[in-house]
C-alpha cells in the first residue's frame, strides 16, 4: 500500500496536498513529513485533497489532527479537507471527527 502526495502552491500563502492511496500506520509518517513544514507562521491555508484516498486509519487521522491543531492556534488559518469518499467519511464519523474538521463537499478544483 502506497501513498502518493502531490504538492501545489496556490495563490497567497496557501498550499494544496493531493493524496492518492492509503493513509495508515505505514504511510502516515510520510504524510506528516509533508504536512509539518507547511504548518508555520507564514502559511495561512493548507488544503488536503483526499479524493484519491481509499482508506484511512487512526494513524492517518492523528496526522490530520495535527493540522487541525495548527489551524486553531492562529487566527485566520485554515486546514481544509476535501474529496472524502463515502468510506473515508464513514471513518471520520466513527471517530467523531467529521464535525470538527473543516470539510468541503464536492469535487476539488
Amino acid at each position: 500500500m502506497n501513498l502518493e502526495i502531490d504538492e501545489v502552491k496556490q495563490d497567497g500563502n496557501a498550499t494544496r496536498l493531493k493524496l492518492d492511496g492509503v493513509v495508515n500506520i505505514q504511510t502516515a509518517v510520510a504524510l506528516r513529513q509533508r504536512i509539518k513544514p507547511l504548518l508555520n507562521e507564514t502559511c495561512r491555508e493548507v488544503h488536503i485533497d483526499l479524493i484519491g484516498v481509499r482508506f484511512i486509519d487512526s494513524a492517518g487521522l492523528a496526522t490530520l489532527v495535527e493540522g487541525l491543531q495548527w489551524s486553531r492556534a492562529g487566527e485566520g488559518r485554515r486546514f481544509v479537507l476535501s474529496g472524502l469518499s463515502e468510506n473515508v467519511r464513514d471513518i471520520f464519523e466513527l471517530a467523531k471527527l467529521d464535525t470538527i474538521f473543516d470539510i468541503e463537499d464536492g469535487k476539488p478544483a
Binding site: 482508506f55 464513514d90 466513527l94
Partner: peptide, 19 residues
Amino acid sequence: DKQTNRMVLAVDELFANIA
C-alpha cells in the same frame, strides 16, 4: 462495501496495536 471497510479498519487497528 461500507461494512467491509469497517472490518478492515478494526483488524488494521488491532494489528497496528500489536505491532
